[in-house]
Amino acid sequence: MADTFPSTISRAEVPANRRRGGDIRVLLSPRTVAATAGFMGILTLASGEYVAEHYHPYSEEYLYVVEGLLTLTIDGHAIEVGADQAVLVPIGVRHRAENRGGQTVRAVFHLGPLAPSPELGHVDTEELPHPGEHQVVVGDRA
């Protein structure tokens, strides 16, 4: 946890979580800055990469695409979210993020409220691309 307030977190300070696919880095969380209402980070997807389908039983997810074109499949319906566009994924709704284009996708995400415990925050609904990789618990309160 951060020792001083306010504190800043750099993308380079946070290890990539690639277990579900892509490069997911949680920057502001209970662990990094003692957040109590949610967590925020950045998703980077190279061409052809994806984040496996999942849902959040306790949190809604806000996504803002900074760069590239993100294909987001929400409850089976694919939509394209381009740079400077945002989308809300409601609580309990299955979603999958893909980069079907040639340019890297960078998107900022925020989830809230927090699940009662970190392991309850995500429910995977498809096989993970890197299941053996060490899981960085997103939004960990520890």
Rank of each mutant, 00 (worst) to 15 (best):
P116C: 13
H77A: 15
R141H: 10
G101C: 01
S47T: 01
R11P: 00
N17T: 04
E49M: 09
E119S: 08
Y62W: 09
A86R: 11
E80N: 15
S10C: 11
V14A: 14
E13G: 03
A107V: 02
A12H: 11
Y58F: 13
P15D: 10
E98T: 08
I24F: 06
T125F: 03
V137I: 09
I42K: 12
H130W: 05
Y55E: 05
L111V: 10
V89P: 01
G121I: 04
H134D: 07
E119Q: 13
L111G: 04
V89W: 00
L63E: 00
L69I: 06
V65S: 11
Y58S: 05
P131C: 12
P30E: 08
G132E: 14
G92V: 04
Q85C: 04
R141S: 13
F5Q: 15
S7F: 06
S47V: 02
S7P: 00
F39H: 13
I91H: 13
L111K: 14
E133H: 11
Y50V: 10
T4R: 15
E67Y: 03
G139C: 04
R94P: 05
A115E: 05
L114C: 02
L128R: 12
L70G: 01
G68V: 00
L43D: 02
R106S: 01
T8D: 08
E60A: 09
L120Y: 01
Y58W: 07
S10A: 15
G21H: 05
Y58P: 01
I79S: 15
A86S: 09
G102K: 15
T36E: 13
R25I: 00
T125V: 11
H77L: 10
H134V: 06
D140R: 14
G21P: 08
V14P: 06
G132F: 06
Y62R: 09
M1S: 09
I91Y: 10
P57E: 07
E98V: 01
N99P: 02
E60I: 06
A35Q: 06
P113S: 08
A52G: 09
T71M: 07
V108K: 11
I91E: 11
E49C: 06
Y50G: 11
L120K: 15
T36H: 11
E127L: 13
G121F: 02
V108I: 14
G21D: 07
R11S: 03
S117G: 08
N17S: 14
G68E: 00
A78G: 01
T71P: 05
F109H: 05
A12Q: 15
L27Y: 01
L70Y: 01
V136N: 09
V89T: 04
A12F: 06
A2Q: 05
V33C: 07
A142C: 09
G101S: 08
G41M: 00
E98C: 06
A83D: 03
G139N: 09
D124L: 08
I91S: 10
G48T: 04
V87D: 00
I91G: 09
L28Q: 08
I79M: 13
G82L: 00
R106T: 02
P113N: 11
G101M: 04
R11A: 07
Y50D: 10
A142D: 14
H130A: 12
V81R: 12
A97M: 13
T125C: 10
H122N: 15
G82W: 06
P15T: 10
V136T: 12
E67K: 13
V66H: 15
